[in-house]
Design a protein around this nucleic acid. Structure first.
Lengths: 242, 242
DNA sequence: CTATCACCTATAGCATTGCTATATGAACTG
DNA sequence: CAGTTCATATAGCAATGCTATAGGTGATAG
């Protein structure tokens, strides 16, 4: 029954906590259960983790690494938006596979205190979206898009977890996913030109902006500013050869 | 200190619980605090509500009626999709106004046990969406659309609640809202605008270039030039669309 | 007016919770 | 060997949710 291999007590505590958390079917997990399963007494727990929450944070950190590993395991497909879709799906699957852990990570919301985990997940998403932006596939700032998509992603996952497993319909996920991605992407407009493939994304973006600026009349810059701006733009777009 | 008007103890318990819940900056609320504030002893609570959770459910039920009242207060505008937007905004505002209550209602997710409240909110949303469907403005089944929109709505609200109040940016909400509504509606077929949903291609290109420049290290501009350049770029890419 | 009976509330206390003051052992360092 | 530090154990505290039991109150029946 007890987890006493020859592992150090710290590890045994982590494993015991993770196991109890995973099988707790929603019920609360007490420190006494954990210490008993780990074959250890209370002060050991508090010596190593300071707090019950400290122990849980450690478990969450391990879970988060697993999560991130899953998110990064996909080689970039060259289609950033496609990668985002897989990221979304991976997020949902992680939540459904380890609902208890997921709830500790993303469901433990408290006002004014954002879990660090959320910020990390957001950064991960933003990183991916920045690639999409660099490819001219994004309609809004990567940060805003990341926050928006992640919010919807978490909302959907929580909703699915709350449902009886039998009724879980992943279509809710894919539908919401595509809605969000579609909304932040430029897919809807004319497809990106095929010749963009070889060049550096900086150059492509600069060319696009140059053309767009010439065509429209932006009033965000004064004429003198605009002149200098265009000059720099030209320098950038003609620099990196081919 | 105590809430002993001449109200019956049941009411006093409800009010005490609601008040403590609203002001408990995230901390747990104990039955002893509640009974003391209500000027009542423990057995009274358990006689009337059976459980601590029973009492909380009763508080939530009251909160939900307030929520529903808010949702229904809008006279149908004749534009169902516009009503959905107001419904969304009202949902978010309710959550931000009473975060603790909202968290008890929507944040207390447990696997396999969906709070009745969620089903009710879903029904409310579906009801509204059915009108949109009747007007030929819906792309998918009202039920699916309602689930999807509500999931995103809850996700956004939780995200906003978790943020420090000072940093809360409601644009996250409106952006996600419009994305979801756009996705389930037939608006897109009717071609809202020739450009990217109102966003000029200048802005899109500027966002792309901004992201590309951050990623790569272009040496075509001096650092001081680059700084000014990025500032202008930011001004362009965050300019009000249209 | 008394008696009964259902309902509501209080006294007191149980078991469990998270956590800790204190002490003991082990292991390395001088 | 003495001393210091880290790691674990014994025992127990205050707070928690909850309850067994009993007392009080009102209405209704005789």
């Amino acid at each position: 029954m007890s987890l006493d291999g020859q592992l150090p007590p710290k590890m045994r505590l982590l494993r015991a906590a993770a196991e109890l958390l995973a099988n707790s079917a929603g019920a609360a997990v007490s420190t006494r259960q954990i210490t008993q399963l780990a074959g250890v007494t209370a002060p050991t727990l508090y010596h190593h983790f300071g707090d019950k929450e400290g122990l849980f944070d450690a478990v969450v950190a391990a879970g988060f690494e697993e999560y991130v590993a899953g998110e990064r395991d996909f080689a970039p497909s060259g289609h950033p938006l496609e990668d985002i879709r897989r990221m979304w799906d991976n997020h949902v699957l992680f939540g459904l596979k380890q609902p208890e852990l997921y709830l500790v990570m993303f469901g433990n919301i408290r006002p004014e205190s954002r879990p660090a985990i959320v910020a990390d997940a957001e950064a991960l998403m933003e990183e991916m979206l920045t690639k999409a932006a660099a490819a001219g596939q994004l309609n809004v700032q990567p940060r805003e898009a990341a926050r928006s998509i992640l919010a919807a992603n978490v909302g959907v996952t929580l909703m699915l977890i709350a449902e009886p497993a039998a009724e879980r319909n992943l279509e809710l996920s894919t539908m919401t996913r595509d809605a969000m991605i579609f909304a932040v992407s430029t897919e809807q407009a004319a497809g990106t030109s095929p010749e963009n493939s070889g060049r550096s994304s900086v150059v492509v973006a600069a060319i696009a902006l140059n053309a767009a600026l010439q065509a429209s009349h932006s009033d965000q810059l004064s004429s003198s500013e605009l002149k200098l701006f265009l000059e720099w733009l030209h320098r950038i777009s003609t620099s990196a050869s081919s």
